[in-house]
Structure formats: C-alpha cells, structure tokens
Amino acid sequence: MALKPITGRDPLWRDEFSVYADDERFVTRRQFAKFLTLTSVAMAAGNAWILAKSWMYRAPAYPLRVVAAAGEVPVGGVKLFNYPASTDPCILIRTDQDTYVAYSQVCTHLSCAVFYSQATRQIECPCHKGSFSAADGSVLAGPPPRPLPRVVLERRGDDLVATGVEVR
C-alpha cells in the first residue's frame, strides 16, 4: 500500500498518530521528552489544585445532635445514625458498660459500609477485609489507608450527644 503523502495541512498530532498503520512513525526522543514534560506540568497542576483546595477549606460547624439515650444500646450492641448531614452514615458502639464510641461508617479505603463484629470486637469492612480498632478507629489490618473519622460524643444527662467529627 502506498504511503499517504503528507500534505502539510493536517495538524501535527494527526500526522504523528495516524489511523493508518502504514503511516505510523516512531515517536522521536524530542516528542517523548515533550510528552513527559507535559505530564510533569499536569502533576504540578494537581499539586497546585490541592493547595488551592486547602486554602479554600473552611472547617465545618458541627451541630449538636442527640444520638441515643444512654441505656438504649446494649453492651456490644450498635446503633446506626447519620451525622453531621443526613447523608453521612455513622455507627455508635457500646464497647463496655460505660464506654460508647462512634465512627463514620464509611470505610476509608473505598467507602464501603463497615460493621462491628462482636466476635472479634473490631470494626470490619466486608469489601476488602479491612479492620479497624473499636477502641480508637485505627487501622488494624487490610487496605484502608487512614483511621475511621471519629464522632465526638458527650454525655449530657441520659443522652449521648454528637458534637463534632475528628478526621485523622
């Protein structure tokens, strides 16, 4: 098959990445260097975007919300609730007679819903076998890169009140 003559009218990218196999050319070192340099610019742009997001970040104001009554959850039991927004699922665990802890129910790996296993006394993610400590939400095993965000609880009378979220 005869090669298509280069007319000079086609843009450079169409010449370099032709749809016809016979017209394909090797990428030169200069083109490769240009490609790598542009990728490097994209990486820097990504870091600049994160910087801009961190400058624009404002710590949210968390509402006070009654999560449960003190005796409502049995020892080793859980209660699911949403905090601070109705789209943020959380899990309240009564680990001991007087100890209540609450965490975000969203796994820090790929956002699956975690659950509390009474047998292992750990918070587990069913998707990729990640597990978190029920005591402090830290990662014990599996792929999750960060601890679970902790919901700050206060006891006011007989009520457990959520006052904030601690992202770690």
Partner: peptide, 27 residues
C-alpha cells in the same frame, strides 16, 4: 489532604513546581 493534614499542601506544591521547572529545562 484527605486525612485533614492541610499543612503539607504548600511545600508539596512548591517542590512539585520546582521539579516541573527542572523537567521543562531538561526538555
């Protein structure tokens, strides 16, 4: 950034821009 440590964003951006400068110079 996802874990709430925003202080690293500035030095990381500066280093990344510096590395891009070196890459552009080499290009």
């Amino acid at each position: 950034f996802m874990s709430g440590r925003h202080a690293v964003a500035l030095p990381a951006a500066l280093v990344s821009i510096g590395l891009t400068g070196v890459c552009v110079a080499l290009g």
